[in-house]
Design a protein around this nucleic acid. Structure first.
Lengths: 210, 210
DNA sequence: TAGATTGTTAATCGATTAACAATC
DNA sequence: TAGATTGTTAATCGATTAACAATC
């Protein structure tokens, strides 16, 4: 069960949630927790929790449960949260600036080393103590600084070109805020889509149904 | 198959994506499309597309395929995109301001009628031509203007209190950017979570695996 | 009519839940 | 030891895919 690559996305997608709840428990000073108790707090079944965790190894102990600190550390390792990665933001509009700030203060695994925009008027404007750079300097910057992650906050119309460029410049992973389907066109890139519009529409549906 | 309430979330979650692709096709001037052709463009199987659409009705025609405009209109109706809803933003930080702006220009179904923040120093600052309001005025504002949707952009620590208040003030749906589990605590509210951190961690996992 | 493509049923696949023996 | 709770297997459930008759 602990062979990597065999673990389904359904399981992976739940890991950040476990991590979050374990962090909360740690802060509360909880030392141990059973799958049953976690189940109550998180809304997953105890069975699923044990099943999920066992994909990566036997972190628990019969009759005792799980050690909160150990489990949190293990999940952190599984997710690779300790491997810091250099990231750049493409698009210094509202979303781009918000995400740059958010990542810098709330998600230490990514290290924002540059913010780029196409607009000449943006160039030089300070974000997080760094000057916004014009997109024309992207290639040189990447060759010098070797970022591996990019956050795509440009208008969807600009996305195909930017994605192609980032791909050729050695970017390995992307957070895609546009509606352009990067993953479909670059199957070797790791992509996480954050389609705000999709979430809005799903909420609309739920609201109209009730 | 077209009984409402019986349609699974897996299907619903794909509808916004259909809608998006159909909008693109419309802009390209495409009149008709087959499930097979859609399948190629979207990366779903043709079988799944037909299965999904048939949950809501037979929008296609044998031997012809689907009429793009008609299908787009139908999916818009299914999602309820024409029923505009009054929305408020709680938390006027970077994310709050970015989302307020984004919704106003990119998602016309929600109409942002107020932005609130706890910080005294924020009060009065203009966003989208409206003054940011102090959170103390939330109750009065809601009673007067009856918003039904709220976007939660406060720090997670503040979320439980704010969620309780919004719930009691008649809010029906929430876009939750915090890590507080609103849905677990208010099962009658419609909630869409946008857990940026979870997306970041999932990307980390994918990057470390490869 | 012949060709194309849907709507729909049946088969497969995968994910979740239940159960329980192992063991702390 | 007795009680608790895991790890793991088996059973169930739901979602996806395949197949094909209906029909435009």
């Amino acid at each position: 069960m602990s062979k990597p690559g065999l673990i389904s996305m359904s399981v992976i997608k739940r890991m950040p949630r476990y991590y979050r709840f374990l962090c909360d428990l740690l802060e509360l000073g909880t030392e141990r927790i059973s799958s049953r108790e976690l189940s109550n707090r998180m809304g997953f079944t105890a069975s699923q929790i044990r099943q999920d965790l066992n994909c990566f190894g036997g972190f628990g102990q019969q009759g005792y449960g799980y050690n909160v600190r150990q489990l949190q550390t293990e999940i952190g390792k599984i997710l690779g949260l300790n491997n810091r990665k250099k990231a750049i933001i493409i698009g210094a509009g509202n979303i781009g600036r918000a995400i740059a700030t958010y990542i810098t203060y709330e998600f230490k695994t990514f290290d924002i080393i540059g913010v780029f925009d196409k607009k000449e008027s943006m160039a030089g404007q300070m974000i997080l103590g760094m000057p916004t750079r014009h997109i024309s300097g992207l290639e040189e910057f990447c060759k010098e600084n070797l970022p591996t992650v990019a956050v795509l906050c440009v208008p969807t119309s600009a996305a195909p070109e930017v994605a192609a460029q980032l791909n050729s410049l050695g970017i390995k992973g992307m957070l895609n805020f546009t509606h352009y389907d990067v993953a479909l066109n670059y199957p070797d890139l790791q992509v996480e889509n954050i389609h705000l519009n999709d979430s809005f529409m799903t909420l609309c549906y739920k609201l109209n149904k009730n």
